[in-house]
């Protein structure tokens, strides 16, 4: 076990929590704005990372939303981000593909690396970067076009017009998203006619169509009913091992069912990060245990 000792580039904004601090006080220390070291399990560090988040800070205007996040995201594994509302999970996820660039008054320090390439390097072309990732949002957001065009959208914007290529990608992606059998007879109907669960699986198909290096799922089931949720969770299970998945979720069961690793965040800080089984059964910190068992948050 290793304790990450972060140093905030913005200068220390309070005294460092002394080692051996009683764990219950850690959340209070975080709430008081003091820096708290994250507990990162050794097994996480033993994995090959596809994405390395390195002392990442983010401010919305004057308000700091992420505090010195340092976490590696393992290759071809499912990593879940859990934590109470407003803890910065989604912000962190949207920072990975730089969607936060679209928000005004966002300022960041630190960096992330995708397969070794700096994401926040000024020379990095953000469009090229996003082409290497896929993202699925809270609410299904199919585009106003046919199912087929939705799936091959990423290829279309790259100028791919070969019918054979597109057909193949469309079928593979829809099969990958467990949607093929349901829509194969109406590929050219509007995607807007699908049910919510189907729409969300369509969005997953769209996200995996271009073979992304990382798949970002931002609470993909929060707008779905239990049956649709079950289907999407099954799908995430199937994606495991083939894609590196970073998933934000509010649902502890979902995190424990679908993920290999789980990171617990609180008020913009990473608190504990380790294999899902350990986080849910014998976490290092009492706070983590309290959260995953539902005693707070």
């Amino acid at each position: 076990m290793q304790v990450f000792t972060d140093s905030s580039p913005a200068g220390s904004q309070g005294s460092r929590a002394p080692a051996g601090d009683p764990p219950a006080d850690r959340l209070l220390a975080v709430a008081a704005g003091r820096e708290v070291a994250a507990e990162v399990h050794d097994r996480v560090l033993a994995e090959t990372p596809v994405l390395e988040i390195d002392r990442f800070n983010l401010w919305y205007g004057g308000k700091q939303a992420l505090h010195a996040i340092t976490m590696p995201v393992p290759h071809n594994k499912v990593t879940a981000l859990v934590g109470p509302s407003g803890c910065g999970k989604s912000t962190l996820l949207r920072s990975v593909n730089r969607l936060n660039d679209l928000v005004q008054n966002v300022r960041i320090t630190g960096d992330m690396r995708l397969s070794g390439d700096s994401i926040y390097d000024p020379r990095m072309d953000v469009i090229e970067l996003r082409k290497r990732m896929g993202m699925v949002f809270q609410k299904p957001n199919p585009f106003p076009m046919s199912i087929y065009e939705n799936v091959v959208y990423a290829l279309r914007i790259d100028g791919e017009n070969s019918r054979a290529v597109l057909d193949e990608v469309c079928e593979l992606s829809l099969r990958g998203a467990a949607l093929w059998d349901e829509v194969k007879d109406r590929l050219h109907d509007s995607a807007l006619g699908l049910s919510g669960g189907q729409q969300q699986r369509l969005c997953i198909a769209r996200a995996i169509a271009a073979e992304p290096e990382v798949l970002l799922l931002d609470e993909p089931c929060s707008a779905l009913d239990p049956i649709a949720t079950g289907k999407v969770e099954d799908l995430i299970q199937e994606l495991r091992g083939r894609y590196s998945v970073l998933i934000v979720t509010h649902n502890m069961q979902q995190a424990s069912r679908t993920s290999d690793y789980t990171a617990f965040m609180y008020l913009g800080r990473l608190i504990e990060y380790g294999p899902t089984t350990e986080i849910f059964t014998k976490p290092i910190l009492r706070e983590t245990e309290a959260y995953v068992t539902g005693r707070f948050g």
């Binding site: 469009i127 090229e128 290497r132 959208y153 990423a154 996200a207 271009a210």
Partner: peptide, 10 residues
């Protein structure tokens, strides 16, 4: 929708 499109690399 815009975000979805940007996320696809558009």
């Amino acid at each position: 929708m815009r975000e979805g499109s940007y996320a696809c690399g558009a």
